[in-house]
Each structure stands twice: as structure tokens, then as C-alpha cells.
Design a protein around this nucleic acid. Structure first.
Length: 426
DNA sequence: TCTGGGGTCCTAGGACCC
DNA sequence: TCTGGGGTCCTAGGACCC
């Protein structure tokens, strides 16, 4: 029998901040996103005040003043460091640990029940993280990941007499039914804000209802994903522990601007920055990217202002992890999609077609500029121009791109773009 | 005035090939 | 005049997670 434990840090970002500033003890504290835009973490005191997660900071500023809520900008370096320390402690409790997110890990506890109660073991985990790092965690234990998530939820809410630790593996069936009947279906891992209302309409209101649903019917009406969730709720494990973090298949660097930006040069700077960051992430997993997407957009919340958003995906002539190369293509892309006269609010770079650097396409033609003088390239150009008409390839980028496309047996479309332009709302 | 920044997986439909 | 069936690849969109 497979047993999963989910260990989840309470109010993680806020707790980290309190750890490094004792004056914040007992103070209601929120941590804000980039540019101090939204609330991304709340201390227990703030949760008690009913401040929702993700709310824009400006909307609760008055309330914050009234209740003495402290706000801090986020410090992800600090949180990542604390997260690593938590994982180190957890690795002392199981040889199989999956780091699921910055504040959550799954542990495999197979066979541990033979010598001790799992609930007691969970409590040891909780106590040690508290004593060694000063961070409070909750522990949920069950036969599947989805159930462990719910057990953790119960541990947090103090259901079933748990004080931060909840073990579903030894709970009486009638008691489990009672507990799951009290949890709304939307709390289930994998049921979000779209699915929950649809399930409600079908009369599935609680986790218990979903657990008792017909899996095949759920698959037919929703998806295989939700079917798996139902199976997991029934105690049949469909999701395994993933100990090794797979390489990213897509790497994004994007950010909202502090102030609105109109000038081409400023957007170009921002995109160069994002391309650089994305390239760093790419190299850190020793991969290359075969395509680069850039996007720019105005503020979608400013309904009365003219809206413009556009993106362009550029297939790279050769998969690369080189910063200068990626910055160069980001700049070229921007020239294609930039429009004057808009107040841009956000920009970003996405890398895709990612594969290990060892599999990078062999450099058949040398770099684009160099190859412009090579006989091989001229031969290729001739063939392309013969096949698709004289002058098909003119500029250097089109040459390189055309060759790349030809290698894949597909010349067009050269670029894929999407954009939308909405009229001003009066 | 001010509204985050990342990621994943699945499905449907069209193009294209044999 | 009749007009198959199976497979792959690609893209867009929808859902979810933290």
C-alpha cells in the first residue's frame, strides 16, 4: 500500500518575513507581488480579517490602515532559501521526497506504519520543522496524493480533532464520510473555479459527492483529468511521486511595468532583459530553445483606454541558449509588432521547442552572418529560390529561416503572429 | 492612479501523408 | 461516377496548479 504525506508550510511567505523580523510577531502582515500590485501571502491575523488572496493592494489600503496591516514587497530569494532548508529537514524523514512547490512537498511513507502510528510520525515532522527552522507546517497523510491534499486541508482547518496533522489511513470509513461531506467540492485538488459550478449544477456539492460519482460518467462529461481525480478520491492512486524535476518545456520571463511605457526603446530594453533572464534559466538546465515568442500589451483593466496586444513567435534558424542571439531575435520581433501611441503595461518573452543542448541541431551552415558568404548557403538559397520563385529569400533572417524551414520540409508560414485591437469604449 | 508571474496537461480540429 | 481509413503533426483554447 502506497502512503503519501503532504507537508505544507503555513502562510509561507508571511512566516518567512516574520522569522527575520521579530517585531512582526503578532502583527497582521501581507506580502505583495511585483510592483506591490496584489496580495500574494497573508499572515493568520490577516486571514482572520477576511482579506482574500490575490486582491489588488490599492483596494484594501484603507482597510489596511484601519486594522494596522503591514505590507511588504516579496523577497523570493529569501523564500527559496527557506524552502530548501525545509526540504532538507523533510529528507530526514523519507528517502522519497517530491518538492511540489515552494512551500509543499510530498513524502512517500510506504511501510512506515509497521513500526509506529503515521499520525505520530507526522507530528514528529511538524515538530522538527518548527524547532529547527521556526516554521509551522501541516501534515496530511493518505493513500493518494489527492486525499493527502484533503487530509492536509483538514489538518489546517483542525477538522477531525487534528492539530496540524491529519491521517486518513486509519480513520473509520463513517468518520471519513462525515469529514468529506463538510468540504466543498471546489476544495478538491484539480477542481477550480470553472469546474466547481458545473459540478454543483449536477448536484455534486461536496468532496464526498464527487468521491461517490461515477468515474466513467465524469470522464464522458468532463475529462480524463477529472476522472483521475475521482479515482484518487476513491483511494485508487493515479498520480505517482515525482522525485526528479523534469526539465522545463517552456520558459517565460514577463513582468508588468511600474509605469506605462510608450517608447519603442523602453520596450526593447524590457524585452532584452526578459530574453536575458529566460536564457539564464535555459542554460541552468542545459537546454536550447528552438523558438522564441515575445508579447506586449496595454493594461486590460483600463477599459476606457485603447487596447492593443500582440505577440509573435519566431522559429529560430538554429536552436540556441545564447543570450545575444535571443536578445537579437526579441528585438527583431518587436519591430514587427510594435505600434506607436499605446501605453504598454506588460511585456514578456517565452522560449519553447526546448530540448537538451546535446541535441542542438548541428551547425550545418555556420552562423547566419558567416554563412551569408558560404558556398553551401548560396547553393541552398538557389534551390529555395528555384523551387518557390526568384526572390523568395531576400533578407539575412529570411535566408536563415527559409533554410531552417526547408530542412523541415515546410517553407511557410514564416512567422505566426496574433494580435487584437479593440476600439475605445466611450 | 494603482490589478503577479510563473507553469502543466488535455482536447478538438485541420492539414497532410500513405 | 464512385470518393476510405488510419496515422501524425501542429495550433488554439480551456482547464488546472502554486
Amino acid at each position: 500500500m502506497t502512503i503519501f504525506a503532504l507537508v505544507d508550510c503555513n502562510n509561507f511567505y508571511a512566516s518567512c518575513e516574520k522569522l527575520f523580523d521579530p517585531k512582526l510577531e503578532g502583527v497582521p502582515l501581507v506580502v505583495l507581488s511585483n510592483n506591490d500590485g496584489c496580495v500574494v501571502a497573508r499572515s493568520a491575523e490577516v486571514k482572520a480579517l477576511g482579506i482574500p488572496m490575490g486582491v489588488p493592494w490599492f483596494k484594501i489600503r484603507d482597510q489596511a490602515k484601519q486594522f494596522g496591516i503591514q505590507a511588504m514587497s516579496s523577497n523570493y530569494t529569501l523564500y527559496a532559501d527557506m524552502s530548501n532548508r525545509v526540504v532538507e529537514v523533510l529528507e530526514g524523514f523519507s528517502p522519497n521526497v517530491e518538492v511540489y512547490s515552494i512551500d509543499e512537498s510530498f513524502l512517500l511513507l510506504d511501510g512506515f506504519a509497521a513500526t509506529q502510528s503515521l499520525e505520530a510520525y507526522g507530528r514528529k515532522i511538524k515538530d522538527r520543522v518548527q524547532h529547527w527552522l521556526g516554521l509551522a507546517v501541516c501534515v496530511g497523510i493518505a493513500e493518494t496524493k489527492t486525499l493527502a491534499k484533503l487530509a492536509n486541508h483538514c489538518a489546517k482547518k483542525g477538522h477531525a480533532g487534528s492539530a496540524g496533522v491529519c491521517d486518513f489511513t486509519t480513520i473509520a470509513p463513517s468518520e471519513l464520510t462525515r469529514v468529506l461531506s463538510k468540504i466543498e467540492v471546489g476544495e478538491t485538488w484539480g477542481v477550480g473555479r470553472r469546474l466547481a459550478p458545473r459540478l454543483e449544477k449536477m448536484g455534486i456539492h461536496t468532496v464526498h459527492d464527487l468521491r461517490n460519482a461515477n468515474a466513467a460518467q465524469i470522464r464522458a462529461q468532463f475529462s480524463v483529468v477529472l476522472e483521475r481525480t475521482v479515482m484518487e478520491l476513491k483511494g485508487i492512486a493515479c498520480l505517482e511521486l515525482e522525485e526528479t524535476t523534469p526539465d522545463k518545456k517552456q520558459i517565460v520571463s514577463s513582468r508588468s511595468f511600474g509605469q506605462r511605457i510608450g517608447a519603442f526603446e523602453h520596450l526593447a530594453d524590457a524585452l532584452a532583459f526578459h530574453a536575458t533572464r529566460a536564457a539564464e534559466k535555459l542554460r541552468s538546465q542545459d537546454s536550447v530553445a528552438g523558438a522564441l515568442t515575445i508579447f506586449i500589451r496595454t493594461n486590460p483593466f483600463a477599459l476606457k483606454e485603447p487596447q492593443y496586444q500582440r505577440s509573435i513567435t519566431i522559429p529560430l534558424p538554429q536552436a540556441t541558449q545564447d543570450t545575444r542571439e535571443l536578445v537579437k531575435w526579441a528585438g527583431r520581433g518587436l519591430r514587427r509588432i510594435y505600434r506607436r501611441g499605446f501605453a504598454y503595461a506588460k511585456a514578456g518573452v517565452m522560449l519553447s521547442e526546448i530540448r537538451p543542448a546535446a541535441l542542438a541541431q548541428a551547425d550545418l551552415f555556420g552562423s547566419m552572418e558567416d554563412s551569408a558568404r558560404s558556398d553551401t548557403l548560396m547553393g541552398m538559397m538557389d534551390r529555395i529560390n528555384q523551387r518557390w520563385g526568384r526572390g523568395t529569400l531576400r533578407t539575412a533572417s529570411e535566408q536563415a529561416e527559409g533554410i531552417w524551414k526547408m530542412n523541415r520540409g515546410n517553407l511557410s508560414p514564416r512567422y505566426t503572429t496574433s494580435w487584437s485591437e479593440l476600439p475605445t469604449v466611450s
